[in-house]
Design a protein around this nucleic acid. Sequence first.
DNA 1: AGCAAGATTTCT
DNA 2: GAAATCTTGCTA
Length: 222
Amino acid sequence: MALELNSSPLEVAPQLLGATVRANGVSIRITEVEAYLGAADPASHAFKGETARNGTMFGAPGAIYVYFTYGMHYCMNIVCWPAGRAGGCLVRAGEVIEGEELARERRPAVVRSRDLARGPANLTRCLAINREWDGAALCVDGVRLKDGEEFVVVNTHEPEPLIQTGPRVGVSGIGGDGQLYPWRFWIPGDPTVSAYKRGGGSRTKHGQATKVTARDQRLNPQ
DNA sequence: AGCAAGATTTCT
DNA sequence: GAAATCTTGCTA
């Protein structure tokens, strides 16, 4: 199955489920992703235009947008849409299927294998991807999308038969009605999928905002 | 210049 | 529930 990155992150995201990414000696089967729609999406880093940080998302599709956050974490996006139109898919979680020893060296505190790449920053840690990888090219099914750059390998596969969708993690409602769009995609029942947490947004500062409610659990059944 | 919040993770 | 830790964007 070919991966058409020149289209909407909403179309690319489900296709990434079940695909494998490889970098620095570790392969991961992707089990959870989120779509970010750039100019049309207040939760996207690209919503307010191009900056030094998010420039990669405005470039050609098939690049990796890597950002640094919370003073200590890196997260990885696969850039979608043609150059000039920002958008991408955040790779949130996956199962380590190759190079587990290396992955464990990079995540020494982890006990269970399923936790190695559970969560976007944990996943990049397993792959040893940091800000230096920002702008690196993807290599899809053996085809280099750009030459002369470091690259991350993505091997696609048959489409996942079962896909579940729900609100994005840590993102509050967007749009006039503050709606929680179901732009998170995951493989149902997979133990490596991360836990759902609602975004803070305009809610109260204490407690309520980050508490996982019974309704949240229904949105992300494990 | 100062400040609050963040596409998070980990420990208590 | 809160800390760790820094970049970004807004307010003054």
